[in-house]
Simulated assay, not measured.
Amino acid sequence: MTLSQLSTPLTKDQAYALVDAVMAREDIAITASAHENEDTGEWVFEATCDSAPDVEAFNRIARETLGGNVSFAVEAIDPTVNWVAKSLEGLQPVVAGGFYVHGSHEEHPAPSGLTAIRIDAAQAFGTGHHETTTGCLEAIDRALKRKRFRAMLDMGTGTGVLAIALAKRTHLPVLASDIDPIAVTTTVENARDNGVGRYIIAIEATGLDHRQIAAGAPYDMVVANILAGPLVSLAPGMRKVTAIGATVILSGILNTQANRVISAYSQQGIVLRQRIVKKEWTTLVLERV
């Protein structure tokens, strides 16, 4: 596989808007991200492609999303290097919602009273450091203090960190799905390493219409940390697979996109109960009524 990276400097809002637009497409990039250059303070949009990028397609998306032309730079990526893991090496542990998420390089034990989850940098999203993940962990912690769940689904599981959090606290089965086979493999490995391999079933699935997801319905707890666009599209399906009274935790949502997601789910009888805001990201806690 010949990997390449396409990037351009933008404002923070523009960069995140373009990330959302690109990730709503399944055929244009493996992943897209926005980050701030610590040296210059400049925000940069980056997309990783598994072949030479379709620059004109990116230009069309940029014009539609940002209302103007963007100049993209393209460079080849060394395929022998796991750039995701390399960029995340040495990250400090994260405490969120009573969970202690750490890498295997961490030498100190988890503080007393916290649930430890070991997640190493890998080719999947979810080391616990992003605001969307910490928001979900806090929402999970609060939900588990209110009620006991029996049928749980983690959509877009990434590294499996949220599924592992649910399994560690409940000691009950959790179905974890992702469209990326690497994420599925990573989740299985992380579940095993965290001692909850027998509780987590990881499957490759797009959306909610997979036969195994349907077989496990109705769910009384669903977590989906993906993107606003796909979340809106999933709203009708979410109603079909959830039980009355189910808790639905949604994240991967920019603050500016939250009302759109809330509206889509409200129309399906899944209403807002709590909103967790961390920097520019929102995590929504909803209930099927």
Score class of each variant (00 low, 15 high):
residue 44 V to Q: 13
residue 274 Q to A: 15
residue 142 R to N: 07
residue 150 R to F: 15
residue 262 I to G: 06
residue 40 T to L: 01
residue 149 F to E: 02
residue 251 S to P: 10
residue 272 L to H: 07
residue 242 T to K: 08
residue 32 A to C: 15
residue 51 S to V: 06
residue 286 L to Y: 00
residue 77 I to E: 12
residue 263 S to N: 15
residue 155 M to L: 15
residue 203 I to M: 11
residue 9 P to V: 14
residue 267 Q to K: 14
residue 3 L to C: 00
residue 30 I to E: 14
residue 252 G to E: 05
residue 282 T to L: 05
residue 267 Q to T: 13
residue 215 A to G: 07
residue 3 L to G: 01
residue 11 T to A: 11
residue 110 A to V: 07
residue 259 N to G: 00
residue 205 A to G: 01
residue 238 M to K: 03
residue 36 E to P: 08
residue 173 P to Q: 03
residue 181 P to K: 05
residue 92 Q to R: 12
residue 104 S to W: 00
residue 186 T to L: 03
residue 87 S to W: 15
residue 176 A to F: 04
residue 83 W to I: 09
residue 50 D to Y: 07
residue 22 V to F: 05
residue 44 V to E: 14
residue 185 T to V: 07
residue 9 P to C: 13
residue 266 S to R: 02
residue 176 A to V: 04
residue 183 A to F: 11
residue 57 A to V: 08
residue 66 L to K: 06
residue 241 V to Q: 01
residue 53 P to N: 01
residue 150 R to W: 11
residue 166 L to F: 04
residue 21 A to Q: 06
residue 192 R to W: 09
residue 279 K to I: 09
residue 125 F to R: 05
residue 17 A to K: 04
residue 262 I to A: 00
residue 275 R to Y: 08
residue 202 A to N: 03
residue 200 I to A: 00
residue 257 Q to C: 11
residue 36 E to R: 10
residue 14 Q to N: 08
residue 225 N to Y: 07
residue 252 G to V: 07
residue 100 Y to A: 13
residue 150 R to P: 04
residue 186 T to D: 07
residue 219 Y to D: 06
residue 204 E to H: 08
residue 14 Q to E: 15
residue 282 T to C: 07
residue 6 L to H: 05
residue 225 N to G: 03
residue 224 A to R: 10
residue 45 F to N: 04
residue 210 H to G: 00
residue 262 I to M: 04
residue 102 H to I: 00
residue 259 N to F: 03
residue 140 I to A: 12
